[in-house]
Design a protein around this nucleic acid. Structure first.
Lengths: 226, 226
DNA sequence: ACAAACTTTGGACGCTGTACAGCCACGGTG
DNA sequence: CACCGTGGCTGTACAGCGTCCAAAGTTTGT
């Protein structure tokens, strides 16, 4: 019996049964122990879930993206993709990441890497801090919206089926009242969620590269360009 | 007795006690009725919360931003600020918005307006759809992260106290292991969350304006600029 | 072999969302 | 006016939840 075994069981239940399945009693049963035994290793259920979130974030190997030879934008993009892959692999656990404060060591290591990347891009400390916050918000928010609606567990279905689901759903949009929304739904159904993710990510990177430069401008002045 | 009274009570409890306080029994007690009476008007608890989310989104008056005289970027920014204000006014309810699928009429009306704004900006239908998705992700994700950690109810404390809390928290960052993160925390503590929100929002708008133009390019080609 | 420390357990408390059967006050029809 | 059907509401109940307490069991140190 150990913290690791408990987290294993919790993740297993979360993966196949969603958040509702990850109860203290079920976790304990999965480990083969009485419910209360959990409280020997964690003060309460929230601590278990926090630890699990930390473990998942720790699984993102971001040392790969340290190589300063490559362009910073490419490295940020690769890291964002890696992070998304890690999160979507466990849809039921995504809620743990967006709900909590993300102040564990793995979260900080990830943030540190991101800050390093933006420093490489020529952003000053203030701009890098804001940029890393922006990117985190986008990555987590995007994945969160993507898995929203997968109420009861199971992994994310493969992309073809998800596209079909989107197509079926768009017929419920009242075309006469929301013509643009209906058209947008058709458009969105025509591309994979990875493409959509990358599109937004690249807009953000473009917006960031506009403040990147040797002067270290923090880009706080003025409204949108033009 | 009516749907409206139930939603009133639910929102009241959500505001002062957070998500945990919004139980069916508590809502019923607040209305002055037996718990089961709720099920006369809503099939289950989730339906109550969905309806409440819809009502909140319906409270965002976006007709104001239809005026095509003003620059599209200014109008998007104003809408994003209005939306954020609506959400942060009820921190306990933010979770309802990021969890659900956002397919109600108010959500669609909001999306429709956003699509219109991006069409005004010169984005083609595909790019407008992606842009609106990107903006929604940012707004909801940003607010969600902002209210994360306000576990037990109550309104968001005023900005000075939040800044103080951030400052107190940053002393827990191990400076030797995460120097950039520590520095970033100091930086973030020096600006209000509204400023941070606007900073990211403007990076996104800059990134979007790069694909805005008479050609209606969908901006899908190539990696980040440079 | 004894004691101390730690782990695990059975049982319980108060809470949750929700189903079933019955009550009660109302509207339309004789 | 009397009647009866209908629909909102209630009392009760069930299974499950997170968590605490006291007792039991197990391991460790001497």
């Amino acid at each position: 019996m150990s913290e690791a075994k408990i987290l294993d069981a919790a993740l297993r239940l979360l993966d196949q049964g969603g958040p509702v399945a990850a109860s203290v009693r079920r976790i304990a049963a999965e480990v083969g122990v009485a419910p209360n035994a959990i409280y020997t290793y964690f003060p309460d259920k929230a601590a278990v879930l926090r630890a699990l979130a930390e473990r998942l974030l720790g699984g993102v190997d971001h040392d790969v993206f340290a190589d300063p030879e490559q362009h910073w934008g490419v490295r940020v993009e690769a890291l964002a993709l890696e992070l998304r892959a890690t999160l979507t692999a466990h849809p039921g656990a995504v809620g743990l990441l967006v709900g909590g404060p993300l102040d564990g060591p793995s979260s900080m290591a990830l943030n540190e890497r991101l800050l390093q990347l933006f420093a490489d891009a020529g952003l000053g400390p203030a701009a890098a801090a804001q940029a890393s916050y922006l990117l985190m918000v986008y990555v987590f928010g995007s994945v969160s919206r993507e898995v929203a609606g997968v109420h009861e567990g199971g992994p994310l279905p493969p992309e073809p089926e998800r596209a079909a689901a989107r197509r079926a759903e768009l017929s419920t949009v009242p075309v006469d009242r929301f013509p643009l929304t209906a058209a947008a739904a058709v458009t969105m159904a025509g591309s994979t969620s990875t493409e959509q993710y990358l599109w937004g990510l690249r807009r953000i990177l473009v917006g960031l590269s506009a403040v990147a430069g040797p002067d270290g401008d923090d880009g706080s002045s003025g409204a949108v360009a033009r």
